[in-house]
């Protein structure tokens, strides 16, 4: 068991290494000079040269890369070129809204997608199944920002049930918080619901053919118990895998959703950083989200091993 853990942990290191290489190359190979971005258009050549020297931009790429990795391993992600504040601090301030949005979307997804997928597989080919698959295909086909605007148009502009845009932290009271986060959460959840309900249905279809499901039914267990306890548990692994790999999709969705609903989270921060060419901020956000992706998927992998002995001994 321990050796499995260690092996999986070690495999995450080369993955993160490649992430770092990609981000490093992305920012170094694209045209556009960070020194110019710091100094502004008025800077003299001598000033530019001084800034390049202080940033180490005159060193060979390999030296720059090693120095850069070394600094990050010590927790130093650098300072923003625009505001001169430590980028980790800026990211920390924007984490709250994004986390709230993502967690709400995840909760909504599980609430809707799992029963949808289970019911569709249970009545394979029937009306419920077709309805669920239709909803799912539409969820894949309509961009999140369109869903966001339709929700705003219907529930905020016409019905006036919700505010059009904006964000209030949980600290300002649960009422205002929930009131403003509900529509963005639903918009973000839409694509995730499409994805997870499809995967749940597919995985359940496999499991429902197994002998132990027939046995459970034969001994007279109520159908709900058979579906949700016996079948869904065994169908869980492919579903969890998609939840993990879907995290990258979730981040993409967050960027768009925060723009539509004007939420001051990480997504807005990254768009602003990119438009302002704030290199340290861009690379820190990309590295941290990629790192989170790797950790989430690692945790999911390890959770299989904990719950399913077959995987441990492979």
């Amino acid at each position: 068991m321990l050796s499995y853990f260690l092996r999986r942990l070690l495999m995450a290191i080369p993955v993160m290494f490649f992430v770092a290489v990609f981000v490093f190359l992305l920012l170094r190979l694209t045209p556009g000079d960070p020194a110019q971005a710091i100094a502004g258009d008025q800077a003299s050549l001598a000033q530019l040269e001084a800034i390049r020297e202080s940033l180490g931009l005159n060193e060979p790429l390999s030296v720059q890369f090693v120095t850069w990795i070394g600094q990050m391993l010590q927790g130093d992600f650098g300072r923003s070129l625009i505001s001169d504040r430590p980028v980790l601090e800026m990211i920390g301030q924007r984490l709250g809204p994004t986390l709230a949005l993502a967690l709400l979307a995840m909760a909504m997804t599980l609430l809707f997608a799992l029963p949808m997928g289970v019911l569709a597989a249970w009545r394979d080919g029937g009306m419920t199944d077709r309805l669920v698959m239709t909803v799912s295909v539409i969820g894949f086909s309509v961009p999140i920002f369109v869903i966001g605007y339709v929700l705003i148009g219907v529930f905020a502009v016409n019905l006036r049930w919700f505010p059009v845009q904006g964000y209030k932290a949980l600290a300002d009271g649960i009422g205002p918080f929930a009131h403003r986060i509900f529509l963005p959460g639903l918009a973000l959840a839409s694509i995730y619901i499409a994805l997870i309900s499809r995967m749940t249905r597919a995985s359940m279809l496999e499991v429902l053919r197994e002998d132990y499901v027939r046995t459970a039914r034969a001994k007279g267990l109520p159908e709900g118990l058979v579906l949700f306890r016996h079948a869904l548990r065994n169908a869980a692994i492919p579903i969890l895998t998609v939840v993990g790999t879907g995290f990258a999709m979730m981040i993409s969705g967050v960027v768009v959703t925060e723009t539509v609903f004007n939420i001051p989270g990480l997504g807005r921060l990254v768009v602003d950083a990119v438009l302002a060419r704030d290199y340290p901020l861009i690379q820190a956000i990309i590295l941290l989200t990629a790192g989170t992706y790797v950790l989430i998927n690692l945790a999911i992998d390890l959770s299989y091993a904990l719950t399913d002995p077959r995987i441990r001994y492979q």
């Binding site: 556009g32 960027v255 992706y293």
Partner: peptide
């Protein structure tokens, strides 16, 4: 795996914004 870990839209907006 490393490329997949970077959310696609972050990579895309970074590439588009940093180049022309």
């Amino acid at each position: 795996d490393g490329l997949m870990a970077i959310p696609g839209i972050l990579l895309a907006i970074a590439i588009v914004a940093l180049t022309k």
